[in-house]
Design a protein around this nucleic acid. Structure first.
Length: 869
RNA sequence: GGGUGUGUAGCUCAGCUGGUUAGAGCGCUACGUUCACAUCGUAGAGGUCACAAGUUCAAGUCUUGUCACACCUACCA
């Protein structure tokens, strides 16, 4: 496919046309296709973050993903075969929630599959959510993510990200499920993943287990209740201050610090829990602090993580009173673990809270305590941090349940040393990884009681009595993956034996979404063409800093467990986009600017320019001014190119280097060569922002100075050197800017009169082709620097005297170092041209510093236009 | 409580391993230009480089301390 019908540049710059033209051309010619025949050494392999397919892309995505694209494009122009996949993270809770709202449906696994059901988008429906089967629900999820992903793709194409779209993956695809399930089987075999019945953090809204990484603290209002406990066979009482009175019924013990003089004498005695008359031991424990509350506290199952720790050591049974729905369970006193000294009274009181949600039960218990005289004074308001699931809106509960865990606690040291083998950019981001790893206090709970995710490839045997025997795990062979144990029967069984005595049941849970996301390198590799030389570690993992503890951490963990290596050599951590008021941008504020609007308003290259200006890891305030600046640069590139084309005219020869002979041209090219070197150095350090800075500065220098100086000579007969230099300069800038502004550079590249049939795309060009600058340029840029400086002084003087730039200069004195003077004397024709200086008008003097004096302008000069007026 | 980062012109930010009178863009003021330029140029106003002490011939840049903000992490009866 050819690039454009009409050759050359249009009179007017039209960003949208150029963007669409480029996208079509790149895709038709597979410019960004990964070349699987290249060796690993000659490849650059990227573990791209798959954005969550939950509606729309945020401007923050454009920001950080563009930074990666710039790096990918630079590496491609270094001759590397760039492995640059893109994926969609579409499994898990975010998708489920979006689907529920979008179609106003809810999943009920008990309902049978309805073949005729078609999900329809329903806006603002007040009706109750329609309940559908698990299979229908999953199909609805698949329908919506397909739509969302199309929109994402359009935005990424429009902004010019150079993904190889053949490598697109989705985390819910059969391939991803297969890889994720194979990972599970591998870890199971290695003893790294185990199912245990244990207290876990439970979100009551989503009715699912969550992991430590998904938990965040929220500052919550709470109340300290001072409750009087009595001591068995004694008149003594003591006061406990608690924020969780509803847990009284699950109290296991009373603890105080071993050295606490106030309570020492109570150790070994038995306390009586009010309302329920439960006898519990009073014991010393280090984890009680003397100066918190009243210094003495109750241990319940479970108020917090400390209770869990204490309970584990105690060997006491669990008294679970909060159910998985977050409500108080129906409990009969005097049965099982629920002992009491007064069965009737305990039951009467407990009956008052059965079925209530925990936060309402709390109030009810407080009332009862008050009525019966156990509450001292009024509850005291406090604000304290409470653990929440990051997406939940009710506090987490600790409940005991059977879940799958990946054993991480025994590999913390290994994780830390792996983290040190990876280069973190910026380096301080490694601290976050280290603190998180050091602070890890539980294994990774990977089972979720949800629907849209990767199922556990696990069945359990059902015994002769119809009871599930969790110790009898049935696993599929790897060649059966992907598998859904809720739909497929294990080998040796038939579907008819499901849920039957001596039959089997499938594990109904799905995996934590991170259990799959942590395999993005493996998933991406699965998308590569056959015969690829890919392997871990990859070169880079770009990602944002908020998911260091999840995505980065889990990917490193899985890579170590499966392949015994780090997953990538470097990780590039991007910053956030902040509101202009420096708050984290959020949709809820309603001030969201969508990426597409910005692209339309400023052009894709301009939006990219804004992203390219920010350094890695730095949170940046959103600023449209920066896009306007980018737009100016792009228009300038367009116009400068048009001008060069005009001067160059029909000189279509691409073999220009040998014509470069003028001293000024060589001196300018030295300047340009230095810029190439410094930009290359910056890029090698992944400092694309610094590279852009130096390129941009040199480009404006080119426009403002070199082009002005050489203009007259370029129009003259003796213009071969000037024309060759303009060509070489423009070719150079187009390549230098290509990673940042892929559209305008491609447009100019394709429009060059000296374009050769072998010139496919600027994005296939090599930076090594810029080495020609080194051979044709002068040893130094002294001549160019001097002429630029002198002409700037002349320009200044003309402006100061309100004269036209064409106004002749009768005479001036140039003072400069010996070398500069001799160099200038021999090559002053360009200076005379640009300043319009009279013959023999320049007086040269050797001086320590460059200085221009006594500029005499021709006061009789009248610009042409003013003659008319 | 522990830790990391940030604090430079009205705004958004550069300033790499310490080196001459601290920079850019935008904004503002004044003037000019319309030449490839949905422009550009020149000049001006505007900074005690958060604060304090120290090291050094020399500190925005290094050290220590203080303050403010952001974030990470822990605790959370």
């Amino acid at each position: 496919m050819s690039y454009k019908e009409e050759p050359g540049l249009d009179k007017q710059f039209n960003a949208e046309e150029i963007e669409k033209r480029c996208d079509a051309y790149w895709s038709a010619n597979e410019i960004y296709k990964y070349d699987a025949t290249q060796s690993r050494d000659n490849s650059f392999v990227i573990d791209t973050p798959p954005p969550t397919a939950s509606g729309s892309l945020h401007i923050g995505h454009i920001f950080s993903y563009t930074q990666t694209d710039i790096i990918a494009r630079y590496q491609r122009m270094q001759g590397k075969s760039v492995f640059y996949p893109i994926g969609w993270d579409d499994n898990g809770l975010p998708t489920e929630r979006r689907v529920q709202n979008y179609y106003n449906i809810a999943c009920n696994p008990k309902i049978p599959y309805d073949q005729t059901f078609k999900p329809v988008h329903i806006d603002n429906d007040k009706n109750e959510r329609r309940e559908i089967s698990r299979k229908n629900f999953i199909e609805a999820c698949e329908t919506l993510i397909a739509e969302d992903e199309k929109i994402f793709e359009n935005v990424f194409r429009r902004i010019g990200h150079s993904y190889d779209w053949n490598l697109t993956y989705s985390t819910i695809s059969p391939t991803s499920i297969k890889i994720s399930q194979a990972s599970f089987l591998d870890l199971y075999q290695k003893g790294k993943v185990v199912a245990v019945e244990a207290p876990i953090m439970w979100d009551v809204t989503f009715k699912s287990a969550v992991s430590q990484a998904e938990v965040e603290d929220k500052e919550m209002e709470g109340f300290f209740h001072d409750i009087r406990f009595s001591v068995k066979d004694s008149n003594e009482t003591f006061i406990i201050a608690t924020t969780r009175p509803e847990l009284l019924a699950s109290c296991l013990a009373i603890v105080a610090h071993p050295d606490d003089e106030r309570y020492k004498h109570l150790f070994g005695k038995t306390a009586i829990v009010p309302l329920f008359d439960i006898p519990v031991p009073i014991v010393p424990s280090e984890h009680a602090e003397k100066d918190k509350g009243t210094g003495i506290m109750m241990v319940c199952t479970f108020g917090d993580a400390a209770d869990v720790t204490w309970w584990k050591k105690s060997g006491l049974p669990i008294k679970q009173i909060i159910g998985l729905d977050g409500k108080i369970m129906n409990i009969t006193y005097g049965e099982g673990v629920f002992n009491t000294l007064n069965k009737e009274e305990a039951q009467k009181n407990f009956n008052q809270i059965i079925g209530l949600p925990a936060h309402i039960a709390k109030k009810k218990v407080a009332e009862m305590l008050k009525e019966q005289g156990f509450l001292i004074g009024e509850p005291k308001k406090i604000v304290h941090p409470v653990k929440f699931y990051e997406k939940g809106n009710l506090p987490l509960e600790f409940v005991s349940s059977r879940q799958w865990f990946v054993k991480l606690m025994d590999m913390k040291d290994e994780m830390l040393s792996a983290g040190r083998k990876i280069k973190w950019l910026p380096s301080y981001m490694q601290h976050r990884y280290e603190t998180w790893t050091e602070g890890l206090n539980q294994d990774w709970c990977i089972s979720r009681q949800r629907y849209f995710g990767v199922p556990f490839p696990v069945w359990y045997k059902v015994d002769a009595n119809g009871n599930i025997d969790y110790s009898q795990v049935i696993l599929p062979s790897k060649d059966r993956l992907p598998i859904d144990p809720m739909a497929d029967a294990p080998n040796g069984y038939t579907e008819a034996q499901r849920n039957q005595p001596n039959g089997f049941v499938g594990d109904p849970d799905v995996m934590d979404t991170w259990a799959t996301s942590s395999l993005t390198p493996q998933i991406a590799m699965a998308m590569a063409p056959k015969g690829s030389n890919l392997s871990l570690p990859f070169d880079i993992r770009p990602q944002a800093h908020d998911i260091i503890r999840t995505w980065a951490f889990y990917t490193i963990a899985k890579s170590l467990m499966h392949e015994n290596t780090i997953p990538w050599h470097k990780t590039l951590i991007s910053g956030f986009i902040l509101d202009p008021d420096r708050k984290k941008m959020s949709k809820s504020k309603g001030n969201v600017v969508t990426p597409m609007n910005l692209i339309e308003a400023h052009s894709a290259d301009a939006v990219r320019y804004w992203a390219a200006k920010a350094k890695l890891g730095v949170d940046t305030a959103f600023d449209e001014k920066m896009m306007q600046q980018g737009r100016k640069l792009i228009v300038k590139i367009y116009n400068a190119s048009k001008f060069v084309f005009m001067i160059v005219g029909n000189s279509a020869s691409a073999d220009y280097a040998q014509n470069i002979s003028a001293a000024l041209d060589k001196s300018w090219l030295k300047k340009l060569a230095d810029t190439v070197n410094s930009a290359r150095r910056s890029f090698e350090n992944y400092d694309y922002a610094l590279a852009l800075d130096s390129i941009e500065t040199r480009f404006w220098d080119f426009c403002d100075n070199y082009v002005e100086i050489v203009k007259k000579r370029a129009y003259s007969e003796d213009n071969a050197s000037a024309i060759a230099t303009l060509k070489l300069s423009l070719d150079t800038f187009v390549k230098l800017f290509a990673p940042f502004c892929p559209f305008i550079t491609e447009e100019v590249y394709q429009a060059r009169p000296w374009k050769q049939p072998s010139d496919i795309s600027v994005h296939k060009e090599l930076w090594t082709s810029l080495d020609i600058l080194q051979t044709v340029s002068a040893k130094d840029s002294l001549l160019y620097d001097t002429i630029s400086a002198v002409s700037a002084e002349i320009r200044k003087q003309k402006t100061f005297e309100n004269k036209s730039q064409k106004n002749p200069v009768l005479s001036l004195v140039v003072k400069a170092g010996e070398q500069a003077i001799s160099c200038l004397k021999a090559n002053d024709s360009d200076l005379i041209n640009v300043g319009n200086i009279a013959d023999h008008g320049i007086t040269y003097q050797v001086a320590p510093e460059l200085c221009v004096e006594k500029i005499m302008l021709d006061q009789n000069f009248v610009p042409e236009k003013k003659k008319v007026g």
